[in-house]
Design a binder for these strands. Structure first.
Length: 139
DNA sequence: GCCAACGTTGGC
DNA sequence: GCCAACGTTGGC
């Protein structure tokens, strides 16, 4: 069964444009157990909302999981894992954190309730609502 | 730059 | 096992 997720990045460090340029990347550097557990639960084919933190925080694009969790080679601690994701599409219009907060359904999203969590699950209903706000046609 | 929220560390 | 101190993240 396909699942949805939200993955957060500071665009100064790694932006959605960077992902589009590279087409695919290792999603690494997660050093929080809850976020790590979410990474570990990802399966190939799962879809992700890509969220920019810091400047103009909000959802800017989508990505697809293409490799499930594996140990982060940049860490000598095997507890930390990466997944590989492929760029999906840039949203027709990005959806700001403020819009998520205002939306009756989306105000309950993990990213809103727990701002510091960098990888969080997204329900199918939340996914659809974000796509609608983003001006994306139904799939 | 400030501050709130939260996670981690370490003393006891 | 508790809790204070400290560090980090992220919104504003």
């Amino acid at each position: 069964m396909m699942q949805y997720w939200l993955i957060k990045s500071d665009p100064e460090t790694y932006s959605f444009a960077d992902l589009q340029r590279e087409r695919q990347t290792a999603w690494d550097g997660v050093r929080n157990y809850q976020a790590r557990n979410n990474l570990a639960a990802m399966q190939v084919g799962d879809l992700c909302l890509v969220y920019h933190s810091q400047t103009n925080p909000g959802v800017v694009g989508t990505a697809e999981v293409v490799r499930p969790a594996y140990p982060d080679p940049k860490s000598d601690d095997p507890r930390w894992v990466n997944v590989d994701v492929r760029a999906g599409k840039a949203l027709t219009r990005s959806v700001s954190l403020g819009e998520l907060r205002k939306h009756p359904l989306l105000s309950q999203m993990g990213v809103v309730r727990q701002g510091r969590l960098s990888v969080s699950p997204v329900t199918a209903a939340e996914w659809e609502a974000v796509m609608e706000l983003a001006g994306e046609p139904p799939r």
